[in-house]
Design a protein around this nucleic acid. Structure first.
Lengths: 150, 150
DNA sequence: ATGATAAATTTATCATGCTAAATAAATGGG
DNA sequence: CCCATTTATTTAGCATGATAAATTTATCAT
């Protein structure tokens, strides 16, 4: 998360420029603006998920399972590979999602170390219920941030 | 933080489009790409701060105090207003920074509820030591993500 | 076969974000 | 002046991210 509410003024960045001449000023300004915009959006999305008693991570877990319909479930490691979180966080989150009956976790038929995670009907329904609001919210944020007049 | 490593393919987004026709597809694609880019950058920046025994929040606290040289310190609320974190997080972080002698916290002369936070010489030196690498890292990320050939 | 190494998952613990509520001081209307 | 409200900060406790290390099973070279 990036916390700075008011980005540095041009003047301030130029002050740093004098001290650190190798810096590409416009790149820094663009980067800070992007970090701020992304942070505001992520906050908005997390708020949306929270009002639906879920979280972005849970939502993305549902998505990555759902978007590979040809495979019969994914292992925990496969899900972790596709999402940039640590294994312990994945373990804990999946266990909570089993409690909430969004997914099922079964033994892997070919590898006794591994487990297969599958969407439940409730999980699939939950994903379908979340998607329209998710897309709508993203569209709102992008429309709000579009530069007027080009 | 946005965790999805591989963004949805065009095909997949179009699949959703059929189900949710009001969605602006290109805006969603742009948004997901931005969220991912920002997340990767924030991770890189946090890693940078961690190798210097600090964090992005501490760094930004130093910055917001430093960038108002005309005022003799800021109150805790003023710092919190400029950075988008909760008051309890600010309290805890400032206390740790006092322990590390990066800042000083003194009674406010005009308001006994409030406190004045000032940079110490060590805090100022620490900020100066962090800035070049910070700008360099941002430049790297922005250069890496610039679209080749336009 | 067996012993070393690698892979999948979990446990333990820490770090850092949050909200709700407590405390203390300032402010402002009667 | 005094009480109600507001403001500044802190305390308490929860949620969710991380890393390090443990456990179990698989793989592979001998």
């Amino acid at each position: 998360m990036f916390f700075l509410k008011e980005l540095p003024t041009q003047q301030m960045v130029e002050g740093y420029q004098q001290r650190y001449p190798a810096t590409d000023l416009s790149a820094v300004g663009d980067a800070l603006a992007m970090l701020r915009q992304a942070s505001v959006m992520i906050r908005g999305l997390e708020r949306y998920f929270k009002t639906h008693n879920t979280s972005q991570l849970r939502f993305l877990i549902l998505i990555v399972i759902d978007r590979e319909p040809e495979s019969d479930g994914l292992t925990i490691s496969e899900i972790t590979d596709r999402l940039d979180v640590s294994h312990p966080v994945m373990t804990r989150t999946l266990q909570a999602m089993v409690s909430d009956e969004l997914i099922s976790i079964a033994d892997h038929p070919d590898d006794r170390r591994a487990k297969l995670v599958r969407l439940s009907a409730h999980g699939k329904a939950s994903l379908d219920a979340l998607l329209p609001g998710y897309f709508a919210l993203i569209n709102e944020y992008m429309a709000a941030s579009a530069t007027p007049y080009g």
